[in-house]
Design a protein around this nucleic acid. Structure first.
Lengths: 220, 220
DNA sequence: TACATTTAGATTGTCGACAATTTATTCCTA
DNA sequence: TAGGAATAAATTGTCGACAATCTAAATGTA
């Protein structure tokens, strides 16, 4: 988003964070009067924020009956990642066509930075999380397709984060992701869209399996 | 959408139709007070409707500066269809996995109906338009992926229609589309997701070329 | 005349209150 | 006591008015 200028923008960011990080529990009911008091504003900008939260799939609204925070489920996660694999694959293919050499160089230096800070803070998952999202973000922007960018960065991004945060993503996959990122940007640099597509799909599929495993462990 | 229950729902449908059909011109500025008077309601439900219009890419809002109806452009059309090819291709692949035999039979009888009414009303583009959208709609629902359904049916659908309506889609392609639809549902019935995916991508690519041609003619 | 600054107008964002609908409680009946 | 109808409370949807911001006109200056 543009940086927050209106009151609705600000409260949106706050509630988004709260939901993603589980501060407002998944599946819980949203009370407009309560939230209005809590964030000290009227219901008008709050409702504007709720409309946008619905847009990025963090809440579900029913007319005259109110809103609930989404519930996390295995089927939901699968559906989300199924879509992500495809869309980010496409983003890679388009990025291989449309990214400038300068942009590619930027992403590469970004990866190097992340590698350093990851070595410094071994096992710390937050920075990896941020680095990973940053990489994907850049590639998506590189597609230069505004609709694709909007869907991935504005509509699905936060829900993906919600799954990752609330299921506590970390573990041994963290280090391997760097190599996969490297391979992807190399394919893009070689203008090999087909390969970049394939690698990104595999990369996300691996990430999905990682989370599925986490879910299974919680189930047992 | 669920059928309209609230005032915001109703005015949304009205404005949606007006924009798609060019009744409110592409690129024109949206005046909240004016629209409120025109549809005889207050600005609160109107703004709710505007938020949803932004969601389906029919208008663009800038904070404190108002909203404009989107402008149609060749690059925009290309980006939109690029995405559609991919997403509806995916929808086909998933439909081949998830559609029940009963659902497939329904779509087939639907195609037969369309064929009849198309022969009856030769050259009439409206029914073909409706039939085409209906076919795509069914297949998308057959994917059983709620995020995919949401994106295609709620967010991109209206913009696609806007391009098709305002550029006056018809011509010789109309009849060929039936055969392509038949081939796609056959692939789905055979549970051949890969083929269904391919055929749908080609089907949409052909549709895109058709519109591009139309655009070129307008340019010259 | 061209340009910048100031002022006036209009538009968007926000507020508090009321109306309509839903949900929870109470009361009645079998 | 259980089930359902009627009532009460709470929540969502809508309204009109005010405040903040942007746009355009008017004024002044180089």
């Amino acid at each position: 988003m543009r940086q927050p200028v209106t009151a609705a923008d600000r409260v949106l960011l706050e509630i988004q964070r709260a939901i993603v990080e589980g501060d407002i529990a998944a599946g819980s009911k949203i009370s407009e009067p309560e939230l209005a008091r809590r964030f000290d504003l009227s219901r008008a900008p709050l409702r504007e924020a709720l409309a946008r939260l619905e847009r990025c799939h963090l809440i579900e609204r029913i007319p005259n009956a109110g809103a609930r925070v989404v519930t996390l489920s295995t089927t939901g996660l699968l559906a989300l990642y199924q879509l992500r694999e495809n869309l980010e694959g496409l983003a890679c293919k388009l990025a291989a066509e449309h990214m400038s050499d300068a942009e590619i160089a930027e992403v590469r230096s970004l990866l190097d930075q992340h590698l350093v800070s990851q070595r410094v803070r071994e096992g710390e998952s937050y920075y990896q999380e941020a680095g990973d999202l940053d990489f994907h973000y850049r590639v998506i922007l590189g597609s230069k397709n505004s609709y694709l960018i909007n869907i991935l960065c504005d509509e699905l991004y936060y829900l993906v984060r919600m799954y990752r945060v609330q299921l506590g993503m970390n573990g041994p996959r963290v280090s391997r992701a760097f190599d996969e990122h490297k391979a992807i940007i190399n394919a893009i640099a070689n203008r090999d869209g087909e390969l970049a597509d394939l690698l990104m799909r595999r990369h996300i599929a691996a990430s999905r399996r990682n989370i599925e495993q986490q879910l299974e462990q919680m189930g047992t």
